[in-house]
Design a protein around this nucleic acid. Structure first.
Lengths: 352, 352
DNA sequence: CTGAAAGCGCTTACAG
DNA sequence: CTGAAAGCGCTTACAG
């Protein structure tokens, strides 16, 4: 009774099935050969007793935890919540637990997360999202000798699910250029993005590259930045659009939330989109469709699932997953109604 | 060397400090008395060796896991991502791990999550978010004899962090009524909300109550529903506002995302807010401020943190947390610019 | 295919 | 305050 209340253990199952605990373990885990008849007997006994394995004991004995850690700087922000959703689904599907480490509370916390929590041996592998690690931190993680897969971070020699920031940014910019825009601004992710993804510059670089390629000289006031939010984008765009000698006809925003903010700012300033202003973003955020935003979709949930798939395969055969070392996660160019040929082509020849 | 690579164990620390493993355990965990001198010696040895405790071993031996499970139907939706963010911060602060169970993939998955994962003894307690459980499921959870705290669900006799759905809905509706509106619609959360929170009806009930209280007969076409998204709200509001004999002057939306969608719909239909239409939501979503939306803030991150606090206190002394059994989580009425006196007071006397 | 036994790395009465 | 020893509930060579 007492025993029952705390759940039947492997011994009880063994007794009921008339076999040894070792056999129960083999039958239930699938490791080691067991006759079909025995397996069935054991399974039935386990079912009858409502046996639930103790992961702690199992992990301690076997060294495997069926538990993956995910480290990200913020669950509350859209991108991360989507990644998490995708990863969580994939993990639950595979029968793995997911331990979440939200490092949002400043670097102090992040450090303790990395140094302690990840090494407490309860994890089979780690997925980092948009995390920059120092050489030392990376070394520590590697010392534990557990698979690490990154999403969107700059971890050297770590299998990484990433989109080609530079190319999609150049693509977005070229889209505006090809429509005839020449006065094109860029609202980047600013420090936040830079810190988390080390790609604020990469997206801006793609923009600068496309502009240079087209022989357009970028004016300094065309470069703005915003935090990743509609409010931030709105503020940045208002500032940008209010400046009389900035008068751009197109804006490439580093994220859809910023782009939506830009659309709102334009509206408030009496600018029509796309007649007076074309706007393009990155993400294919759910608001993008609502606002008819042209964007480059990057499917964060898919990225989360892809990282899980990579981790699981590493866990099985430690294959180096070459595509994650060199390839890029696919993106999708989605043309909607926020971009069009500029209304005043006369402007497009003025270069300063 | 070998040993070192896999991390020093408690024995190595004991040897280095010149004490027994038992003493190391006591010194490091704080359980049991250890002389200050010994404690320091042990701590230093542990630091030098980079000792990290094995949670699996510790949990197996002690029965405590320092790990809390959180079950929610969707991490990707705003409300849940915020709850998670709040809970994660609070847990990391307390030195607890957080295991996430995202049950979004249908009831089949949810069931296995509840029946198996939560019982694998790796968890000290469980926080459920917006989860309806059957009597049986609840019984199973209780059988494990681990603290359960709910957020927003209808779990009987379970300490629950919840806002007063009925009252805030009535409040929101009364706000419109007090401004002079009488033709007021309600866009609820529909099935989705009903299923997850069992409160779709509660929010609608609050609306109906306030309307009845004011002697206003609610016309059937004033009741609409939408999924929890801007897109959903926009669609629902368009349908509602397009109907010529519905002509409401105010809409109470069950969530800010729906309300924002409603604002967009109004704009597209050429209705000015608040001159032609007043809109009020619930949440204080980050978009609410951007859109000047009047709303009732419910601070989901705070709810997550509150649930964690409750769980931790239950873990310490098993106090029943009476406020969580009867009280409500505080909300905040935030008046912005989406609500005002209706332009055409003549209408407000027509009752059918 | 199956069992007895050692062991995973801690914690905690029990003595002292 | 500290140590020796048993035990947490599994897994897995090692034999058979």
């Amino acid at each position: 009774m007492e025993k029952h209340a705390r759940g039947a253990g492997i011994k009880e199952v063994a007794a009921r099935a008339g076999v040894s605990a070792a056999t129960v373990s083999r039958a239930l885990s699938g490791n080691g050969r067991v006759s079909e008849a025995t397996r069935r007997k054991v399974q039935q006994a386990a079912d009858e007793l409502g046996f639930v394995i103790s992961y702690n004991a199992s992990s301690l004995a076997s060294g495997r935890s069926r538990n993956i850690g995910i480290v990200m700087p913020s669950v509350g922000r859209w991108y991360f919540s989507q990644v998490l959703e995708g990863a969580a689904s994939a993990l639950i599907e595979a029968g793995y637990d997911l331990t979440l480490y939200n490092t949002s509370d400043g670097p102090g916390h992040r450090e303790s997360v990395l140094k302690e929590m990840l090494r407490r041996k309860r994890l089979d592998a780690v997925i980092t999202v948009a995390l920059r690690l120092t050489e030392e931190e990376l070394g520590q993680l590697r010392a534990v000798d557990k698979p690490i897969v990154a999403i969107g971070g700059p971890l050297p020699e770590t299998p990484t699910v990433r989109v080609d920031e530079f190319s999609i940014s150049a693509l977005a910019t070229r889209h505006l250029i090809s429509l005839g825009h020449r006065r094109i601004a860029h609202i980047g992710g600013g420090e936040e993005l830079e810190r988390d993804f080390r790609m604020g510059s990469t997206r801006q670089d793609g923009y600068l590259h496309a502009m240079a390629e087209a022989g357009i000289e970028v004016q300094p006031q065309w470069l703005a930045s915003s935090e990743f939010s509609v409010a931030g984008g709105r503020t940045a765009a208002k500032r940008l659009l209010a400046d009389p000698d900035t008068r751009v006809t197109g804006i490439f925003c580093a994220a859809d939330e910023i782009a939506v903010g830009t659309l709102l700012a334009a509206r408030e300033l009496g600018l029509r989109v796309p007649e007076d202003l074309s706007v393009i973003g990155i993400d294919d955020h759910e608001l993008a469709e609502v606002f008819g935003l042209t964007t480059i979709g990057q499917d964060p949930a898919g990225q989360g699932a892809a990282a899980v798939a990579a981790v699981l395969s590493l866990l099985q055969n430690r294959a180096p997953a070459p595509d994650l070392l060199h390839g890029y996660y696919p993106t999708e160019f989605v043309v909607r109604s926020s971009t069009a040929v500029p209304r005043t082509p006369a402007e497009s020849d003025a270069n300063a």
